[in-house]
Every structure is written in C-alpha cells, then in structure tokens.
Design a protein around this nucleic acid. Sequence first.
DNA 1: CTTTCGCCCTGAGTGC
DNA 2: TGCACTCAGGGCGAAA
Length: 302
Amino acid sequence: MVRAGLAPAVDGATILGVDVLEPRSLKRHDPVAGAFDALLTGRTMAEPARRGKFLWIPLVGGDPRRAIVAHLGMSGQMLLREPGTVEDGLLRIRLHIEHPVHGELWVHFVDQRIFGSMAVDTLVPTPDGMPGGRGTTEALVPAQVGHIARDPLDPAFDDDGFAAALAKKNTGIKRALLDQTLVSGIGNIYADEALWAAKLHYEQPTRTLSRARIRNLLAEVRLVLEKALAEGGTSFDAQYVNVNGASGYFAHSLNVYGRQGLPCPRCGTPIVREPFMNRSSHRCPRCQRLRAPRRVAVAPAV
DNA sequence: CTTTCGCCCTGAGTGC
DNA sequence: TGCACTCAGGGCGAAA
C-alpha cells in the first residue's frame, strides 16, 4: 500500500535535492559508490517495487542501474508532503522532487525508532529471470535485497520450492515463516495470525507438514497479507499514517496477536502468549496443538 | 554447513 | 513527581 500510494507521485519525477537529517537512517547505504545525496540529485525515478518489507525506486538510466532502497523497519513511513510543510523531529530524510504532472513535492522518510533505513544500491539480475518484485516488470533487484525470498503474493513465488525447503529443514514452522530467505513479508504478527488460521502450533516441525497443510498455510498467509494491505498495514504506533496521511489501523482484525487471556474467536478457549525467539507467540491452546506426523520416520532398530 | 542469539533504537508503559 | 526498567519490531553479524 505504501508502494501503490507512492507510485503516482514518484514515477517519472526528478530529484531536485536531498536532505539527510539523521545519518543513522543511511546505515544500509554503502558510501563506496558515492554519497547518498550526490547519487540521487538530478536523477529521474521509475515506478516503485516491493519485495517483502523492502521497497525500492529504480532510477532511470545510468550504468550501473541503481535504485533508492528503503526498509521501513517497524516505525518507518514514506510520506508525501507539499513543499514547505513543517514536519516534526521524526523526519530523517527528505527528497525534494519535481513531477511533470504534480509539480514539486517532498517525500519524507519518517522513522521514529530508526529501525528502518534508506540507501542507494545497484540493481542486479534476478536468478530466476522473473520480475524483481511487485510493481515492476524488470528482472532486477537491489543487490542487498537479493537474498530476500519473494513474498507469497508475488506471482513468481514458488509454492513447490517453498514446500520442498520446509521438508528439508529441521526447524519449527514459525521460525520458517519468519526466515526471510525462505519467504518474505511475514513478521511476528502476521505469522501468529496465519498459524492461528491454519490451526498450527508455532513449533510444529516443518518436515512433518504434508503438502496439503503447507498449501493451506500459504493460503492463510496470503489472506492475512491481503487483508493487511487492504487495511493499510499493521502498526501499533498511534501516529501511524499511510502515504496519504490517513490513519490505518489493523488491530481490530487480529484474532490472536496481543489477545492473551481473551477468548479464541473460533472456540472460546483463552489465548495464551508464550516466549519465542526473544519475542512472543500467541496461540489458541485448543485449536493449535502440536500434531503427530502422519508418517513417522523411525530409524530401524539395530 | 545450519541454527540461534544479541544488538540496534526509542517512546510508551509499568512499578516503586 | 520522578526515576529505572521493560518491551516491541526486522535484519544482520557473530556465535554455537
């Protein structure tokens, strides 16, 4: 939704100037190729693309091809503003752009916790030759995003490859969902929601999941991601606004996340919250129990 | 090689 | 009232 909102304003626009108010917001930028502002000033942007939680805006022309890369972290936002707008102290980076139709605009990278960051990065070919991400037809992806898997809403996402990877892994299903090299775009909240919908325990070993269960889980993941996109994403920061400035809460749609002690919407059993990877997992203790594998692979007794 | 862990960061919230 | 402390999140490099 950030990408879709940004697209009409930046596609075809030229960058007139760059203000970096918080250098720490450039931690993804490798200065070897040049300074962030110098690489951007005077360049024209194409349509933004997205893969997982990374957003990038390709620059038109140039050799090598480059793109503005942004990771919004948890608290990051890309906001469109009229020039002269007063922004509060959370503004980290500003792009001053001029669009052939919309005229001059400011693009604000606002990030309270400085977990997100921006960079100028080179574009490299995708190994599978498919478009680099949603929003682009070019088979290019920023170098630093190359190891990130496609997200399940990407038409080029490989369902069978994902299932095959799960069969080989020795880990729990939630760890796999959060592993951005396997599948991207799923954070702690969406993982809990999708696992609840699929009636799976977060520690269910991936190798015990049948193809049918994996298919079902992927379908639930897609529903969660689509709902989140439609509602403008999840954020618990009260000042959350989308690219047009409208408020976008998702919290009212949550079935398990943050609902410990409250009844499971499906069976009424109180939701529990359990420590997991220095974070927490929420699940229904009745709907989401560990399942025995259908076929147990037992080593033959000697 | 695979898997796990700690750190980055800061405002909101909690407890004394 | 004020202070100390905890928590939340995604990605990355280090450690196991």
